[in-house]
Amino acid sequence: MKKDIILAGVGGQGILSIATVIGEAALQEGLYLKQAEVHGMSQRGGDVQSNLRLSSEPIMSDLIAKGGADLIISLEPMEALRYTEYLKPDGWIVSSCIPFLNIPNYPELEEVLARIKAHKNHVLLDVESLAKEAGAPAQAANMVLLGAAIPMLGIDHDKMVAGVARVFARKGEQIVNSNLAAVEAGYAFSIR
C-alpha cells in the first residue's frame, strides 16, 4: 500500500486537521508516514499545502515528486488546481467548490470548476452546505472533505471513522458526533 496525498487550501482553513486524522488512522494501521507542513509567513491567508505520504514500506523523501501524487485533497477549488502537475495521470482531485476570496484577481469561478471537472477522476462538493445539512458547525467542513476522500485513501471507512473519534475525543462527545456526521456526509456524497 502506498498513497501520496497533497492537502491544499488557504492558511487557517484547517488542512492540517485533515492530515492529523489521516495520520492517526494510518499509524493505527501500522503504516509508515511522512508529513511535510508549511509554517511561518505563508500561513497568513496565503496558499498552504502539506505533503502526506503513507506506505506499508519505509518512506524516504518527505516531499512528493511531480507526477507522484495519487490524490489532491483541497479545501478551495483554485488551490486544488495549483498542484495538478504533482498529480499522477490517473490521480484524483477531491475539492470543495466554495472559493476563498481574499485576492482581487481571483479567476472566474465557473472556469475554475470547469478545469477541475476536466479531470476524469474528481469529486467536487459543497462542503459547507453538506456540513450544515448534517447538523455540523461550519468548522467541520474540513471533515466533510475528508469523508469524501475516504474511498481514495486506501484505508477502510470504519478505521478512518475511528480515527476521527480518537482525534476529537478530548473535545467531548458532542464535537465527536458532529465531526462524525460531517465525515459520513462527505463519504455518502463521494460514493453516491
Binding site: R44, G46, G67, L87, K88
Partner: peptide, 20 residues
C-alpha cells in the same frame, strides 16, 4: 526521465500572505 504528470493549470493566480 521526469515522471508522467498532468499539466500545470494556467488559470491559477498567486495568493500571497496578507495581514489578518
Amino acid at each position: 526521465n521526469a515522471l508522467p504528470t498532468k499539466e500545470k493549470e494556467t488559470i491559477v493566480v498567486g495568493r500571497p500572505p496578507a495581514l489578518c
